[in-house]
C-alpha cells in the first residue's frame, strides 16, 4: 500500500494539483481566481506528461558525439522520452494563448460590469 502511494508519487501530485485547479475553476466566485485555477489545472497536465517521459537513471535525449563522432547505436533506455516534452511545448503555447484570451475577456467583463465577482455580475445581468 505504501509502495502504491509513494512509488507513484508523480501521479498523486498531478491528481492533487489538478483537483486544486478544478476546485478553483468550479467554486471560486472571482473570475481571476478561476483563471488561476485554470492555470493550475493545465500545469498539472503538463507535469503529468513530463513525468511519464521520465526514466530512472536516464538522461536528456541529446546525442553525445561531436561532428566526427561517426555512427553509433543509440541506447533508447538511457535517454528519457523526448516526445512528451515536445508535445508539452505545443501545449504550453496553447495554454498561454488560452490565458491571454481569458484575460482579455476578463478585461471586457470588467469594463462592462465594473466588478469581477461572479455573484455581482449575475445580479447586474438580471
Amino acid at each position: 500500500m505504501f509502495d502504491f502511494i509513494v512509488g507513484k508519487y508523480n501521479y498523486w501530485i498531478h491528481i492533487i494539483l489538478m483537483m486544486i485547479g478544478f476546485y478553483a475553476m468550479m467554486s471560486k466566485r472571482n473570475l481571476i481566481k478561476k483563471i488561476i485555477g485554470m492555470n493550475i489545472f493545465q500545469t498539472a497536465i503538463i507535469i503529468f506528461f513530463i513525468s511519464i517521459a521520465a526514466k530512472r537513471g536516464a538522461t536528456l535525449p541529446i546525442l553525445e558525439h561531436a561532428h566526427d563522432g561517426g555512427e553509433h547505436a543509440i541506447e533508447a533506455i538511457s535517454y528519457i522520452n523526448p516526445l512528451p516534452h515536445v508535445l508539452m511545448l505545443t501545449a504550453i503555447v496553447v495554454m498561454v494563448a488560452t490565458l491571454g484570451v481569458a484575460l482579455a475577456v476578463v478585461i471586457l467583463v470588467y469594463r462592462k460590469y465594473d466588478t469581477l465577482e461572479e455573484a455581482e455580475i449575475l445580479k447586474k445581468i438580471k
Binding site: K34, I45, T98, A102, V105, V106, L108, V109
Partner: peptide, 17 residues
C-alpha cells in the same frame, strides 16, 4: 457576451484538458 464567453472559455478549457 463577454461574461458568457468567460464561462464558455472555462468549460471549453476543461473539455480540452
Amino acid at each position: 457576451a463577454p461574461f458568457a464567453t468567460f464561462r464558455y472559455l472555462v468549460m471549453g478549457t476543461i473539455g480540452a484538458c
